[in-house]
Design a protein around this nucleic acid. Structure first.
Lengths: 118, 118
DNA sequence: TCCTTATATGAATATCTGTTCATATATTAA
DNA sequence: TTAATATATGAACAGATATTCATATAAGGA
């Protein structure tokens, strides 16, 4: 702790506690990655549809009005971040949500943007 | 509704409801923007510190170990997204949180990454 | 076996985003 | 008024990211 606290209104002891308790680098890294996944309209739409139904790639593509390839890439992203899971049947891949937090995340975020109301 | 539902396992009626109830373009836009703000380590750190103290720019810069300019740019971003607010006193700007959802957001996200545990 | 269908993926490209650098603005002190 | 300090901001640059295109893989049917 060095150049900190040049300003007034700060209880130095409390600030030291804040620094001591700060999330470690890995936590920050994983948090920002997690939020980045939600920071894209295409992925949000996919997550919304999957929160209602298990769906195959072609149907998702038609629902979000994007090419099959684009959707496939995004599903891969969501899969790697453990937000969706796949079930294969023949050549068809059925995707569904793999995280019970997605719903809560949506709710809090909607609460935010509805209160700010532009 | 056209090329949808080529796959089985889908109740067409329910799918129509899902489409009818889907969030509009503006909501998707605002949601993804909202999440994008959290999708960056520097901003997450800033939000963490501000969740504990009102702080000036110089102290924030020293805490997150970044240049004053970088922090200033990020604070501007956070300000435009209504997550922080400023209070000026002389030449000093004191920032603090401007959103009661930030805490809840953190909690849900932490719950997620702790359960997935790498 | 050959063809069709569903999905996955590497490469290329265009766009977006974060940081730095230089500088502007504004307040206070000398 | 001049200097020093705190912050803000435009421009430039580098790195990240989303989409498209072409193609690979793989299963099922003819």
């Amino acid at each position: 702790m060095d150049a900190i606290c040049k300003c007034k209104y700060i209880d130095k002891k409390e600030l030291e506690r804040t620094v001591a308790e700060q999330p470690d680098a890995e936590t920050i890294e994983r948090l920002s990655t997690f939020f980045s996944v939600f920071g894209d309209g295409t992925r949000l739409k996919i997550l919304y549809y999957l929160s209602r139904h298990e769906l195959c790639v072609a149907d998702l593509a038609s629902l979000v009005k994007m090419g099959q390839s684009a959707v496939s890439h995004q599903l891969r992203n969501l899969r790697l971040n453990r937000l969706v899971k796949v079930r294969k049947e023949g050549t068809t891949s059925y995707y569904s949500l793999d995280d019970e937090h997605v719903q809560s995340i949506f709710e809090v975020a909607l609460a935010h943007i509805n209160e700010v109301k532009r």
